[in-house]
Design a protein around this nucleic acid. Structure first.
Lengths: 164, 164
DNA sequence: TATTGTTATACTCTATAACTATA
DNA sequence: TATAGTTATAGAGTATAACAATA
C-alpha cells in the first residue's frame, strides 16, 4: 500500500503485522481451497484435509482431541468424521477402555487420498513460488515457522481452560 | 520438524515453502475467523469482511469485479451481497450506463461495522504478537508482503483467461 | 447472440441446544 | 452427576446449471 522500499524504514509493530495477515491470509487460503477442490479424483475440503493430516500424526485420537486440534466444536467435528467415514477414508471405533470415547484412524484409502491431495496442493503452491528468489523463500519459511509457533493449537486461547 | 537452527542451513525450496504454508495458514485463518465471529455486536464472516474491505477500496464496483477479487463464483457473490444488503451494510443499484451491471457500495452502517470488526480483529492478532521480537515481526511483515504479491488477485490463474 | 446477474439446487461448514450412552 | 459423542436445527459458504434482463 505504502511507497516504502526497505524493511528497515517500516514502522514494524504487532499492529502492522496484524494488518498484513488480515490482508493476505484469506487470499492464500482461497488459493489452497481452490487447489484442494480442483482435483476431482480426490475432492477434499480444507477442513477434511486437515482432519486427515491430524490423524496421520495422532493415530487413534479421540474425537475431542481432533476437535480441539482443528478448533472445531464437537458437533462440527462429529459431522465431518461422519462424512469421512461414509466415504471410507476414516474409521471410528469405541475405545475398549472407555466406551464413551471414540478411536479415530485412517483407512488405507484415507492415507492414499491424503497423500494425493497433499502432493497436488503442494505442487500448485510450489509453482506459485517458482519465480521467487532464494532470499524471498527463506523469508517466507522463517515467517511461517514463527507463525506456526504462535498459532499452534497449544498456544491458542484454549477452550479447555474455560472455568466452570 | 528438524533440529536445524539457522535459516542459512535449511534446504530452502518452493516445496518447503509450500509445506509450511499448508501447515500454518489454515490455523491462522481459523484464529481470524473465531475473532471475527466472537464480536456479537458485529458478527461478520470472513468472506463478508473481505467483501466490505473490497468496497472500501473499490466504491461502486460491479458484482463481477467483487467476485473476481474475492475468488468467488458469481452466484456465491450474489448471495453474499444479498445477505449484506438485507442487513443494511451494503447498497446495490443498477448502473445507469449499463443496466445489466450492478453498482455496489457500503452504507454508513456498513463502513462503521467494517471499522469495528477490523479494529477488534487487529487487536486480537496484535496481542498474539506481543511476545515476538522486533526481528521476528519484521520477518513476518516481509514475508506477508511477498505473499500478498504472489497471491494478489491479479496474479491468480485468472478465471477471465479461460478460453472458450 | 453475448454479457451480467439471479434463482434453483445441492452440498459442506459451523455453531448452539438438546439428547444418549457410558463412567 | 460428569464426560464423550450424537442428533436436531439453523444459517452461511460454495459450486454448477438453468434462467432472466439488458446490450
Amino acid at each position: 500500500m505504502q511507497p516504502l522500499q526497505k524493511a528497515t524504514i517500516w514502522k514494524v509493530s504487532p499492529d502492522l503485522c496484524a494488518r498484513e495477515l488480515l490482508a493476505g491470509v484469506p487470499a492464500i487460503m482461497r488459493f489452497i481451497r481452490h487447489q484442494m477442490r480442483r482435483n476431482r479424483q480426490v475432492e477434499l475440503t480444507v477442513p477434511q484435509f486437515r482432519a486427515l493430516v491430524f490423524l496421520t500424526r495422532a493415530e487413534d485420537a479421540s474425537l475431542s482431541a481432533m476437535a480441539e486440534h482443528l478448533g472445531l466444536s464437537l458437533p462440527a467435528a462429529s459431522r465431518m468424521v461422519e462424512l469421512l467415514v461414509k466415504r471410507g477414508l476414516m474409521e471410528r471405533r469405541a475405545q475398549p477402555t472407555d466406551r464413551r470415547r471414540v478411536s479415530l484412524s485412517l483407512t488405507r484409502r484415507g492415507r492414499e487420498t491424503f497423500q494425493t491431495a497433499f502432493a497436488a496442493t503442494q505442487v500448485a503452491l510450489s509453482r506459485s513460488f517458482g519465480s521467487l528468489s532464494r532470499r524471498e523463500l527463506t523469508q517466507i519459511v522463517a515467517a511461517m515457522q514463527i507463525l506456526n509457533r504462535v498459532f499452534a493449537p497449544e498456544n491458542r486461547p484454549a477452550e479447555s481452560l474455560k472455568l466452570k
